[in-house]
Simulated assay, not measured.
Amino acid sequence: MTQARWLGRTAGNLDTDMSVIRRISAKPHQVQKRVFDARNTRWDDHRLVVRAELSDAAVRAIDKCGQGVSMEDIAAEAGVSKPKLYRHFGDKAGLYRAVGSRLGTMIWESAELTLQDAGSAPSVDEVFGSLIRSYVRLVAKHPAVVRFLISHKMFQYSVSGDGGAADELRSIVEILAEQFATHLRTIDADTSTVPIVVASILGSGLSATEWWLDGGAEQGVDDELFIAHLQDTTWGIVEAASRRLGVDFSRDRSISDVGFVTRR
């Protein structure tokens, strides 16, 4: 109900306290702002729920239809009209970004569960292996979605944070990298190469993922071999950087162990 209609209705009521009207009318722009804000925030939670449901439907549609998925396919999977998709995402690019964000959330949630299940003090090698395994299993579960995001430049390493689903991967790697950097600081070792190591791990891993999806699996590189390759490659990058710094990281120690890093 607008302010004018409300005041009109109130004015017709002889029992209305005129002081209330005067107080409200004294600052009409503030009343209008409160009404506007309420109207615009009332359904925020509902919109978020609907967007999440539509994003999940888009993931399912891409799983089924692959690269040729259309807005009609996604709308049909979601059980809604195309206009509703556009209303919530603006355009195709907006929906594609939402799909990338949804896969990124899956990657993050999978990593969280993996770390929670890893035990109280697993070795760094075990942590790496568990995280890589959870990532590969997710890629193997949604290969069409990953291919779709790769084709739309939404699954790549990006310093700016515009890499789509890969942003969550970067966050996970950076969390671990900061633990390595903390240990390096305790022995006054240089940490300037840590960002290069992060970029190298992500770049090689994402490139290998694209190769694996494009035919590597058909060439005999199954899940287990691919997991082993990513783990070896990750450690190869870390160890190459550690040699240059004149330090050693003990793969069989917990990352919380004070003896995890030593000088050569």
Rank of each mutant, 00 (worst) to 15 (best):
E53Y: 05
K27N: 11
T41D: 14
H88I: 00
G90I: 00
Q67H: 10
K33L: 12
Y96F: 15
R5K: 01
I24A: 13
Y96S: 08
T16L: 01
I24H: 11
R47F: 02
A38Y: 14
M71A: 09
A4S: 08
V80W: 06
W43D: 15
H46Y: 11
I21A: 06
A61C: 07
A11I: 15
Y86W: 14
K82Y: 01
F36S: 13
V20Q: 01
D15G: 14
V99E: 11
I21M: 07
G100N: 15
S55A: 10
A98L: 10
L95P: 01
L95Q: 07
A75F: 04
A11V: 13
L7C: 06
D73W: 05
D63Q: 14
V59E: 05
Y96W: 13
C65Y: 14
A38I: 02
A76D: 15
K84D: 00
V35C: 03
S19R: 08
A93T: 14
G12A: 02
C65F: 15
Q3T: 10
I74R: 05
S70G: 05
K82F: 01
R34W: 09
R22C: 03
E77N: 12
D45L: 14
W6R: 05
R102K: 12
S70Q: 08
W43H: 13
A58Y: 07
K92R: 08
A98Q: 11
W6M: 03
Q67T: 12
A4W: 02
S25Q: 08
R97G: 13
L95R: 01
M18V: 13
P28S: 13
G79C: 12
A57G: 10
